[in-house]
Amino acid sequence: MTSYVLAVDLGKTSCRGSLRVDGGQTRYAEGRGSPALANAGGVAAAEHAIRAVIDQIAPTTPFVLSVGAAGAASDPEAAAVLAQHLAAVRTISSVAAASVAVTSDAVTAHAGALGGSPGVVLTAGTGAVATAVDAAGRFTRVDGWGPLLGDEGSGGWIGSEGLRAVLRAHDGRAPRTALVDAVGELYGITLDELPKYLGQQDNPTLIAARFAPFVATAAATDETAATIMTAAGGALARTVLAAIDRSGIRPPVPYAITGGLLKLGAALLDPLDHSIAHAIDRRAPLGDPIDGAALLALDPTTALEALVARIV
């Protein structure tokens, strides 16, 4: 029997959707992300972002909708509500989802990267979280607490630290940094306008995260930027090592890293890799979070099933 799966990866930066027929992608769409599900209005924002991607793909046959959403691990009730809302969604051609599965984007990242096998996966994008699954299927999550309480070393964290450093330099509380000029280049505003500009945004963490590549680039020649990137790598390393320790998996632990922060390169990855090399068995990711969502869509027997909200 032919399987139709619409796998969705909903992050704070973007929402990506892939329509797969018998495992092969036939259509793809991408739109804006949304704040974490646990945020005020998070479910409504997530539903809006997912609906926009579904409308772009426009399935014409009933499909299994499988979503990995940022913040679902922190608020399983919100994930269940989102699943209920999505079960009522109809496409432009009046086709509805035959069933719906919603889980955390960290869970789909783990499933995609290690294919359901034990190990640790670090997902580092606008936010940051490490997930571990042991041989008995026990699931451990470290960080992913959002921009106010955690996500240390993430794109949002790096960008925010960079912007804080810029304002310290602007005030004379710290030496001047090359990052000062980057603010105007990226945002087209003066430093005095920065707080108001961020305060007016629906998702200020996403806006701050856009500054992270500038920090990474400047790290080669700017001491302030280099310090931030080293601190980010160290923070991510502590997250990975804590996940290993709490999971009880004996090193060397199968490990993979996924997410947009890979694009920041050596400025971030060198300090991270140096700190965790003794504890990991590095693996190339088998797939990305969309692949993980597609896997979980059709297989309710994985060790991750307890973390999935399903509407059948």
Rank of each mutant, 00 (worst) to 15 (best):
Ala87Trp: 07
Asp9Asn: 15
Ala293Cys: 05
Ile92Cys: 00
Thr126Asn: 02
Gln56Met: 15
Thr126Ile: 05
Ala232Cys: 09
Asp181Leu: 08
Ala78Ile: 08
Glu193Val: 05
Ala209Tyr: 02
Ala70Val: 14
Ala83Ser: 12
Gly71Ala: 14
Ala165Phe: 10
Arg51Ile: 14
Ile311Pro: 00
Ala284Val: 14
Pro271Cys: 08
Arg20Cys: 13
Ala78Val: 04
Ser34Thr: 15
Ala266Glu: 13
Val183Tyr: 11
Leu65Gln: 14
Leu149Met: 15
Gly144Asn: 04
Phe139Val: 13
Leu295Asn: 00
Ala165Asn: 08
Ala79Val: 07
Val240Lys: 04
Leu206Thr: 11
His274Ser: 15
Arg20Ser: 14
Arg173Glu: 13
Arg282His: 09
Ala46Val: 12
Asp270Gly: 08
Ala69Tyr: 09
Val53Phe: 08
Val142Gly: 01
Gly31Met: 12
Ala38Leu: 08
Val100Lys: 05
Ser18Met: 13
Pro300Arg: 03
Pro35His: 12
Gly116Trp: 05
Asp171Leu: 09
Tyr28Asp: 13
Pro118Tyr: 12
Ala232Phe: 04
Ser94Leu: 06
Ala293Met: 02
Ala242Val: 00
Met229Asn: 07
Ala306Glu: 03
Gly259Ala: 07
Arg238Asn: 11
Leu186Thr: 08
Thr131Tyr: 02
Asp299Glu: 03
Leu286Pro: 02
Ala98His: 07
Val107Ser: 06
Phe139Met: 07
Ala209Ser: 13
Arg210Trp: 00
Gly119Leu: 06
Ala72Arg: 11
Leu37His: 12
Ala212Trp: 00
Tyr255Leu: 10
Ile92Glu: 13
Trp157Thr: 03
Thr230Arg: 11
Gly146Met: 09
Val142Ile: 14
Ser3Pro: 00
His170Leu: 04
Leu264His: 09
Ala40His: 14
Thr123Phe: 00
His170Ala: 13
Gly23Val: 10
His110Ala: 06
Arg176Met: 07
Gly234Glu: 11
Gly188Gln: 04
Ala220Trp: 05
Gly71Trp: 11
Ala174Gln: 12
Ala58Leu: 12
Ile189Trp: 08
Ala83Lys: 09
Asp222Tyr: 12
Glu161Thr: 02
Trp145Leu: 11
Val100Arg: 04
Pro147Thr: 00
Lys263Leu: 06
Ala36Met: 06
Asp22Glu: 13
Thr60Lys: 15
Val133Gly: 02
